[in-house]
Amino acid sequence: MNLSVSIGSLKLKNPVMTASGTFGYGEEYAEFIDLGRLGAVVVKGLSLSPKEGNPPPRIVETAAGMLNAIGLQNIGIERFISEKIPFLKTYDTAVIVNFFGDSVEEYVLAAEKLSSVKGVHGLEMNISCPNKQAGWCVFGTDPKVTREVVSAVRKKTSLPLIVKLSPNVTDIGLMAKAAEEAGADAVSVINTITGMAVDARTRRPKLANITGGLSGPAIKPIALRMVYEVYKSVRIPIIGMGGIMSGEDAVEFLLAGATAVAVGTANFVRPTAAVEVLDDIIHFMETERIEDIRSLTGTLHAG
Protein backbone atom coordinates (compact mmCIF):
# COMPACT_ATOMS: atom_id res chain seq x y z
CA MET A 1 0.00 0.00 0.00
CA ASN A 2 1.34 3.45 -0.85
CA LEU A 3 0.50 6.25 1.53
CA SER A 4 3.15 8.76 0.51
CA VAL A 5 2.30 11.95 -1.29
CA SER A 6 4.29 14.90 -2.64
CA ILE A 7 3.80 18.58 -1.92
CA GLY A 8 6.12 20.24 -4.40
CA SER A 9 9.57 18.79 -3.73
CA LEU A 10 8.51 17.67 -0.27
CA LYS A 11 7.71 14.00 0.05
CA LEU A 12 5.43 13.09 2.95
CA LYS A 13 5.28 9.51 4.26
CA ASN A 14 1.52 9.84 4.49
CA PRO A 15 -1.09 12.52 3.74
CA VAL A 16 -2.01 13.37 7.35
CA MET A 17 -0.75 16.70 8.64
CA THR A 18 -1.80 18.88 11.56
CA ALA A 19 -3.51 22.20 10.93
CA SER A 20 -1.55 25.22 12.07
CA GLY A 21 -2.78 26.71 15.32
CA THR A 22 -4.26 23.46 16.57
CA PHE A 23 -1.06 21.61 17.33
CA GLY A 24 1.07 24.12 19.24
CA TYR A 25 4.73 23.54 18.42
CA GLY A 26 4.24 19.76 18.40
CA GLU A 27 5.68 19.16 21.86
CA GLU A 28 2.29 19.60 23.57
CA TYR A 29 1.13 16.41 21.84
CA ALA A 30 4.28 14.29 22.10
CA GLU A 31 3.06 12.74 25.35
CA PHE A 32 -0.08 11.44 23.64
CA ILE A 33 1.01 10.38 20.16
CA ASP A 34 4.16 9.47 18.25
CA LEU A 35 4.77 12.57 16.15
CA GLY A 36 6.87 10.39 13.88
CA ARG A 37 3.74 8.76 12.55
CA LEU A 38 2.45 11.97 11.01
CA GLY A 39 3.04 13.01 7.42
CA ALA A 40 3.88 16.49 8.64
CA VAL A 41 3.62 18.66 11.72
CA VAL A 42 2.47 22.17 10.87
CA VAL A 43 3.25 24.47 13.77
CA LYS A 44 1.43 27.48 15.18
CA GLY A 45 1.85 30.61 13.03
CA LEU A 46 5.06 32.53 13.66
CA SER A 47 6.11 36.10 13.06
CA LEU A 48 9.47 37.88 13.17
CA SER A 49 8.82 39.26 16.65
CA PRO A 50 6.71 37.57 19.34
CA LYS A 51 3.02 38.48 19.47
CA GLU A 52 0.97 38.79 22.62
CA GLY A 53 -2.38 37.89 21.06
CA ASN A 54 -5.90 39.01 21.93
CA PRO A 55 -7.46 39.45 25.38
CA PRO A 56 -9.70 36.62 26.67
CA PRO A 57 -12.25 35.20 26.20
CA ARG A 58 -10.52 33.94 23.09
CA ILE A 59 -12.58 30.85 22.35
CA VAL A 60 -16.17 29.78 22.55
CA GLU A 61 -17.82 26.52 21.59
CA THR A 62 -20.61 26.65 19.02
CA ALA A 63 -22.80 23.94 17.50
CA ALA A 64 -20.41 21.21 16.28
CA GLY A 65 -17.57 23.68 16.23
CA MET A 66 -15.77 26.51 17.93
CA LEU A 67 -14.85 30.11 17.38
CA ASN A 68 -11.37 31.34 18.17
CA ALA A 69 -9.77 34.74 18.26
CA ILE A 70 -6.33 33.93 19.60
CA GLY A 71 -4.81 36.82 17.69
CA LEU A 72 -1.75 34.96 16.40
CA GLN A 73 -0.03 34.77 19.78
CA ASN A 74 3.41 33.27 19.19
CA ILE A 75 6.95 33.16 20.56
CA GLY A 76 8.56 34.61 17.45
CA ILE A 77 10.80 32.96 14.90
CA GLU A 78 14.05 33.34 16.88
CA ARG A 79 12.79 31.50 19.94
CA PHE A 80 11.07 28.90 17.78
CA ILE A 81 14.37 28.11 16.10
CA SER A 82 16.36 27.89 19.33
CA GLU A 83 13.75 26.26 21.60
CA LYS A 84 11.39 24.18 19.47
CA ILE A 85 13.26 23.00 16.38
CA PRO A 86 15.81 20.85 18.30
CA PHE A 87 12.92 18.82 19.76
CA LEU A 88 11.01 18.55 16.48
CA LYS A 89 14.17 17.41 14.70
CA THR A 90 14.25 14.26 16.80
CA TYR A 91 11.15 12.97 14.98
CA ASP A 92 11.01 11.42 11.55
CA THR A 93 8.31 13.75 10.27
CA ALA A 94 8.25 16.79 8.02
CA VAL A 95 8.15 20.09 9.88
CA ILE A 96 6.17 22.78 8.11
CA VAL A 97 6.33 26.25 9.59
CA ASN A 98 3.31 28.50 9.27
CA PHE A 99 4.31 32.17 9.23
CA PHE A 100 2.87 35.62 8.69
CA GLY A 101 3.85 39.26 8.60
CA ASP A 102 2.24 42.67 8.75
CA SER A 103 3.75 43.76 5.45
CA VAL A 104 5.27 42.23 2.32
CA GLU A 105 8.72 43.04 3.74
CA GLU A 106 7.96 41.16 6.96
CA TYR A 107 6.72 38.11 5.05
CA VAL A 108 9.92 38.10 3.00
CA LEU A 109 12.20 38.52 6.02
CA ALA A 110 10.37 35.77 7.92
CA ALA A 111 10.62 33.38 4.98
CA GLU A 112 14.32 34.13 4.54
CA LYS A 113 15.04 33.49 8.21
CA LEU A 114 13.17 30.19 8.23
CA SER A 115 14.64 28.97 4.96
CA SER A 116 18.16 28.69 6.35
CA VAL A 117 17.08 26.59 9.34
CA LYS A 118 17.94 22.91 9.34
CA GLY A 119 14.89 20.97 10.38
CA VAL A 120 12.38 23.18 8.60
CA HIS A 121 11.09 21.23 5.60
CA GLY A 122 8.41 23.51 4.25
CA LEU A 123 6.70 26.86 4.72
CA GLU A 124 3.04 27.66 4.95
CA MET A 125 2.15 31.31 4.40
CA ASN A 126 -0.77 32.50 6.46
CA ILE A 127 -2.41 35.21 4.37
CA SER A 128 -5.80 34.54 5.80
CA CYS A 129 -6.12 34.80 9.56
CA PRO A 130 -9.49 36.36 10.32
CA ASN A 131 -8.41 37.72 13.70
CA LYS A 132 -6.32 40.65 12.57
CA GLN A 133 -7.12 44.27 11.99
CA ALA A 134 -8.67 45.38 8.73
CA GLY A 135 -6.06 46.11 6.11
CA TRP A 136 -4.10 42.98 6.92
CA CYS A 137 -6.71 40.73 5.44
CA VAL A 138 -6.17 42.06 1.92
CA PHE A 139 -3.25 39.62 1.58
CA GLY A 140 -5.80 36.84 1.50
CA THR A 141 -8.79 38.49 -0.14
CA ASP A 142 -7.39 40.61 -2.98
CA PRO A 143 -5.84 38.41 -5.70
CA LYS A 144 -3.49 41.20 -6.81
CA VAL A 145 -2.07 41.56 -3.29
CA THR A 146 -1.90 37.79 -2.88
CA ARG A 147 0.12 37.55 -6.08
CA GLU A 148 2.46 40.30 -4.93
CA VAL A 149 3.20 38.86 -1.48
CA VAL A 150 3.53 35.25 -2.66
CA SER A 151 5.86 36.27 -5.53
CA ALA A 152 8.05 38.25 -3.16
CA VAL A 153 8.36 35.29 -0.78
CA ARG A 154 8.86 32.81 -3.64
CA LYS A 155 11.95 34.72 -4.81
CA LYS A 156 13.56 34.31 -1.39
CA THR A 157 12.93 30.68 -0.55
CA SER A 158 13.57 27.37 -2.23
CA LEU A 159 11.62 25.47 0.42
CA PRO A 160 8.27 24.02 -0.60
CA LEU A 161 5.88 26.95 -0.26
CA ILE A 162 2.24 26.41 0.73
CA VAL A 163 -0.25 29.27 0.76
CA LYS A 164 -3.13 28.96 3.24
CA LEU A 165 -6.23 30.41 1.65
CA SER A 166 -9.04 32.32 3.27
CA PRO A 167 -12.59 31.03 2.81
CA ASN A 168 -13.86 34.56 3.42
CA VAL A 169 -13.90 35.40 -0.29
CA THR A 170 -16.41 35.19 -3.11
CA ASP A 171 -14.29 33.08 -5.46
CA ILE A 172 -11.64 30.94 -3.75
CA GLY A 173 -10.61 29.45 -7.09
CA LEU A 174 -9.42 32.88 -8.15
CA MET A 175 -7.31 33.24 -5.02
CA ALA A 176 -5.79 29.79 -5.54
CA LYS A 177 -4.96 30.72 -9.12
CA ALA A 178 -3.21 33.89 -7.95
CA ALA A 179 -1.11 31.87 -5.49
CA GLU A 180 -0.25 29.29 -8.15
CA GLU A 181 0.78 31.93 -10.68
CA ALA A 182 2.96 33.58 -8.06
CA GLY A 183 4.88 30.34 -7.59
CA ALA A 184 3.21 28.56 -4.69
CA ASP A 185 3.87 24.81 -4.56
CA ALA A 186 0.55 24.04 -2.89
CA VAL A 187 -2.46 25.62 -1.24
CA SER A 188 -4.09 24.87 2.10
CA VAL A 189 -7.87 25.00 1.87
CA ILE A 190 -9.40 26.34 4.12
CA ASN A 191 -8.58 28.61 7.03
CA THR A 192 -11.37 29.38 9.54
CA ILE A 193 -14.56 31.13 8.52
CA THR A 194 -15.30 34.46 10.16
CA GLY A 195 -18.13 34.21 12.63
CA MET A 196 -19.47 35.42 15.94
CA ALA A 197 -21.42 34.31 19.00
CA VAL A 198 -23.67 36.45 21.15
CA ASP A 199 -24.86 36.09 24.73
CA ALA A 200 -28.54 37.00 24.62
CA ARG A 201 -28.78 37.77 28.35
CA THR A 202 -25.75 40.01 28.73
CA ARG A 203 -26.18 41.34 25.18
CA ARG A 204 -22.46 40.98 24.72
CA PRO A 205 -20.38 39.13 22.15
CA LYS A 206 -18.95 35.93 23.60
CA LEU A 207 -15.45 36.73 22.32
CA ALA A 208 -13.50 39.76 23.53
CA ASN A 209 -12.48 40.29 19.90
CA ILE A 210 -16.23 40.25 18.99
CA THR A 211 -15.62 38.10 15.89
CA GLY A 212 -13.51 34.99 15.48
CA GLY A 213 -12.71 32.10 13.18
CA LEU A 214 -15.13 29.18 13.05
CA SER A 215 -13.65 25.68 12.85
CA GLY A 216 -14.68 22.09 13.47
CA PRO A 217 -17.21 19.74 11.88
CA ALA A 218 -19.64 22.63 11.39
CA ILE A 219 -17.53 23.96 8.50
CA LYS A 220 -16.76 20.68 6.73
CA PRO A 221 -19.36 21.04 3.95
CA ILE A 222 -18.03 24.50 3.10
CA ALA A 223 -14.45 23.30 3.18
CA LEU A 224 -15.26 20.37 0.88
CA ARG A 225 -16.98 22.65 -1.60
CA MET A 226 -14.00 24.99 -1.61
CA VAL A 227 -11.48 22.17 -2.11
CA TYR A 228 -13.59 21.03 -5.04
CA GLU A 229 -13.62 24.54 -6.54
CA VAL A 230 -9.89 25.01 -6.06
CA TYR A 231 -9.21 21.60 -7.62
CA LYS A 232 -10.97 22.74 -10.76
CA SER A 233 -8.98 25.96 -10.83
CA VAL A 234 -5.31 24.98 -10.23
CA ARG A 235 -2.80 22.20 -10.96
CA ILE A 236 -0.77 22.45 -7.72
CA PRO A 237 -1.57 20.09 -4.83
CA ILE A 238 -4.26 20.99 -2.32
CA ILE A 239 -4.05 20.30 1.39
CA GLY A 240 -7.65 19.89 2.48
CA MET A 241 -8.82 20.88 5.94
CA GLY A 242 -11.92 22.02 7.77
CA GLY A 243 -13.69 19.84 10.33
CA ILE A 244 -11.92 16.54 9.69
CA MET A 245 -12.70 14.21 12.59
CA SER A 246 -12.28 10.78 11.01
CA GLY A 247 -10.55 8.90 8.23
CA GLU A 248 -13.76 8.92 6.23
CA ASP A 249 -13.86 12.72 6.47
CA ALA A 250 -10.27 12.78 5.21
CA VAL A 251 -11.09 10.53 2.26
CA GLU A 252 -13.95 12.85 1.31
CA PHE A 253 -11.45 15.69 1.02
CA LEU A 254 -9.14 13.57 -1.13
CA LEU A 255 -12.02 12.73 -3.46
CA ALA A 256 -12.94 16.41 -3.74
CA GLY A 257 -9.41 17.13 -4.93
CA ALA A 258 -7.01 17.21 -1.99
CA THR A 259 -3.60 15.51 -2.13
CA ALA A 260 -3.10 15.68 1.62
CA VAL A 261 -5.27 16.60 4.60
CA ALA A 262 -4.80 18.45 7.85
CA VAL A 263 -6.49 17.58 11.14
CA GLY A 264 -7.30 20.70 13.14
CA THR A 265 -9.93 21.21 15.80
CA ALA A 266 -10.14 17.42 16.30
CA ASN A 267 -6.72 17.67 18.01
CA PHE A 268 -8.40 19.73 20.74
CA VAL A 269 -11.16 17.19 21.12
CA ARG A 270 -8.79 14.22 21.33
CA PRO A 271 -5.01 14.67 21.32
CA THR A 272 -4.76 11.34 19.53
CA ALA A 273 -7.05 12.48 16.67
CA ALA A 274 -4.42 12.91 13.94
CA VAL A 275 -3.04 9.38 14.25
CA GLU A 276 -6.56 8.01 14.56
CA VAL A 277 -7.42 9.67 11.25
CA LEU A 278 -4.31 8.07 9.72
CA ASP A 279 -5.23 4.62 11.07
CA ASP A 280 -8.77 5.12 9.78
CA ILE A 281 -7.47 5.97 6.30
CA ILE A 282 -5.31 2.84 6.26
CA HIS A 283 -8.29 0.75 7.34
CA PHE A 284 -10.46 2.36 4.66
CA MET A 285 -7.88 1.59 1.98
CA GLU A 286 -7.64 -2.02 3.11
CA THR A 287 -11.37 -2.60 3.10
CA GLU A 288 -11.88 -0.72 -0.17
CA ARG A 289 -8.80 -2.37 -1.71
CA ILE A 290 -7.10 0.86 -2.61
CA GLU A 291 -3.41 0.37 -3.33
CA ASP A 292 -2.26 3.96 -3.69
CA ILE A 293 -3.60 6.91 -1.73
CA ARG A 294 -2.84 9.16 -4.72
CA SER A 295 -5.40 7.31 -6.78
CA LEU A 296 -8.15 8.90 -4.71
CA THR A 297 -7.35 12.56 -5.36
CA GLY A 298 -10.01 14.32 -7.41
CA THR A 299 -11.86 11.14 -8.32
CA LEU A 300 -15.26 12.35 -7.22
CA HIS A 301 -17.93 10.96 -9.53
CA ALA A 302 -19.70 14.22 -10.24
CA GLY A 303 -22.20 14.60 -13.01
Binding site: P57, R58, I59, F268, P271
Partner: peptide, 11 residues
Protein backbone atom coordinates in the same frame (compact mmCIF):
# COMPACT_ATOMS: atom_id res chain seq x y z
CA UNK B 1 -12.79 29.04 28.29
CA UNK B 2 -10.65 26.06 27.36
CA UNK B 3 -10.51 23.90 24.25
CA UNK B 4 -7.64 21.41 24.53
CA UNK B 5 -6.49 21.49 28.18
CA UNK B 6 -2.91 20.67 27.18
CA UNK B 7 -1.47 24.03 26.21
CA UNK B 8 -1.95 23.91 22.45
CA UNK B 9 -4.92 26.12 21.62
CA UNK B 10 -3.84 29.22 23.60
CA UNK B 11 -7.50 29.85 24.32
Amino acid sequence: HMACGIGACLG
